[in-house]
Nucleic acid binder design. Structure first.
Lengths: 343, 343
DNA sequence: CACGCCACGACAAGCGGTTGCCACGACTTG
DNA sequence: CAAGTCGTGGCAACCGCTTGTCGTGGCGTG
């Protein structure tokens, strides 16, 4: 055997005086070969520095030990912890995670998937920009789990935003707010719909008024843009589509002379990195980011293991309200005259 | 051919009445087969929905079209743009990027590398925690490029922090600061050494005083921790190891009654996401994050293409000072009595 | 003691491409 | 017109591992 080559099962086999198939089974089929033989083979393999070639293994079996996680934008802080959680779960199961960034584009997403699909055993779609039908098509090529979206028949894991929203509302109501705004995100967003709906329901049961602003882009700029409308309205608190919007909103509000939380309370969603960097630090409905990633991968793995299609009911992970500095008791009077409904 | 199987070159070959090898060449060896034949093969392949199996291709050739990017911590905002840049460059060259997170651990890093190495054609090491020698060992298994670190003999791409530091110092001096602090990061950090050295050099030529604080952990908490020492000193401005430390420092300073930038100016490094979320928004030496990732991958690809080991001289990417709100003209007097060297 | 069974290992056929080499015909050239 | 060239396509041997199947020897059992 050439010194500069990496050893194969053939090298190990001749060194042990057994057949290559026996070496293969010594590793992958415990019990199939005599315990002593197996031990000897393993020892020799170890000495020779043998490592199974994952490519060669994958070719006949299709087991690449690779999973894909598709994210709409790697630079979005929302994903950092999700990626971390997914990677953790994948590695724990001896899988490697392939993170694909699709720059918020359905076209790029399709291309990335096309590139990665033959390589991976399963896919986690994080906030996919593709259509439901496109997702269904790809789900029948590879086991798939979707994040932050429900798609009947396809396993999904989502944050329990309804509960989170309710908690946020209760918090604001306990601070004596009676008129609360919602700065909406993209209309195409499934989460946006859920959040707004949950707000209206909470408003009903808590007997307060809610008012919708936007929709705006889910960015700092989007939030800033909405500030004028919020400032000009009667609301004394606002819940924003996500943390970025919330922070932008606080800025815009501050710029227009209002103080947060003194004049207006602000609540965000997700608790991304940055929520406690801003000042005032943002009160927000924290999504279980790491758990989301971890659980998505675990669900995927479970689905791959059992041949029967797994549970269809989406997994709901609990959201928690993190109270920081951007919410406070409603001031007796808003600085603006529009604050008409002071009791 | 079974309806539920994905077509192979063999299927295409029989459909075209040619040999499989011809089909293979029609795709990978342009010019090797007759133009008309090739066109016909491609058309038929297209109709059948043929896609080359990357695994099968990789086995004999070793060309997996996969590149690894190892980052010490995916949740560190420093990496977001780097990953984006790397992915962009990789995709442009028809490569897929495998991002491996190693949670700041040399052990995990080694394991991750062990897992990924046989799959990838090359590796970019972002702020590796491994020893120089360990890196050298792995560099001879696969083409390697290191980020933010120089290692003679191995191509590397780094930020021109010397220049950036000088710009920051010039900026502070132009704001009349004459006594400037540096809050140091981890001593093992190559960048930390470079930054401190550049500060001393700049101090020399600009004729101002510099003082070193720390070292502290490269986190918000680290910065906060250093605030007391900075507040208690005579410096009127501080440059921090990175943005996180800078933001932590601002907080600590504010908590101890000093105002930023009125009493103390603060400058960070890197311009991570978050630098303009905090308030005051941070003045910082912006690292060319996206370019760093992109260039690292391009360097790697270039090195893979030419069989000769590529340039050994590290690539220096320019850093730029981004002036925001955390720096201002030195106040006539610090609130603390220690501010003795007022002219 | 013969038969059958079981445990263990070997053989060989893939998995789906790639590629060195050869064959064959057409064309050029002396 | 013979010989050499070139353009094309086919053959078959890999790449390294998995796995269905078969052969063989040892053992238990009637």
């Amino acid at each position: 055997m050439d010194e500069h080559r990496v050893p194969t099962i053939y090298d190990v086999a001749t060194a042990c005086g057994v057949a290559p198939s026996t070496v293969s089974r010594a590793f992958s089929r415990p019990g199939r070969v005599n315990a002593e033989t197996a031990a000897r083979i393993r020892r020799v393999a170890e000495e020779m520095g043998y490592r199974a070639n994952p490519l060669a293994r994958a070719l006949p079996t299709g087991r690449t030990s690779l999973l894909a996680l598709v994210v709409s934008d790697v630079t979005n802080p929302f994903y950092f912890e999700i990626i971390r959680g997914a990677e953790l779960a994948a590695n724990a199961a001896d899988y490697t995670l392939l993170v694909a960034d699709v720059y918020e584009s359905a076209v790029v997403e399709r291309k990335a998937l096309e590139r990665a699909l033959p390589l991976v055993e399963g896919v986690v779609l994080g906030t996919s920009r593709m259509s439901d039908s496109a997702i269904r098509v790809m789900a029948q090529q590879r086991p798939t789990v979707v994040l932050n979206r429900v798609l009947t028949g396809i396993p999904s894991v989502i944050t329990d935003n309804a509960r989170g929203t309710r908690r946020a509302m209760e918090h604001l109501v306990s601070l004596e707010h009676r008129s609360i705004g919602y700065v909406a995100g993209p209309e195409a967003s499934w989460a946006d719909g859920m959040r707004w709906r949950a707000m209206r329901e909470a408003a009903d049961t808590l007997d307060v008024r809610v008012q919708r602003f936007g929709p705006v882009a889910p960015t700092l700029a989007g939030g800033t843009e909405a500030a004028a409308a919020v400032a000009g309205s009667a609301v004394t608190a606002a819940v924003a589509y996500n943390d970025l919007v919330a922070i932008g909103l606080m800025r815009g509000l501050t710029a227009s002379g209002l103080r947060v939380p003194r004049d207006v309370s602000v609540v965000g969603f997700d608790d991304i990195f940055g929520a406690e960097l801003c000042s005032p630090m943002l009160t927000t409905v924290a999504a279980p980011l790491t758990a989301l990633g971890r659980y998505a991968v675990q669900t995927l793995l479970a689905g791959m293991a059992s041949r029967t299609p797994p549970q269809v009911r989406p997994a709901l992970l609990p959201a928690e309200l993190v109270v920081r500095e951007s919410t406070a008791v409603r001031a007796r009077r808003r600085r603006r005259p529009e604050a008409a409904e002071d009791k």
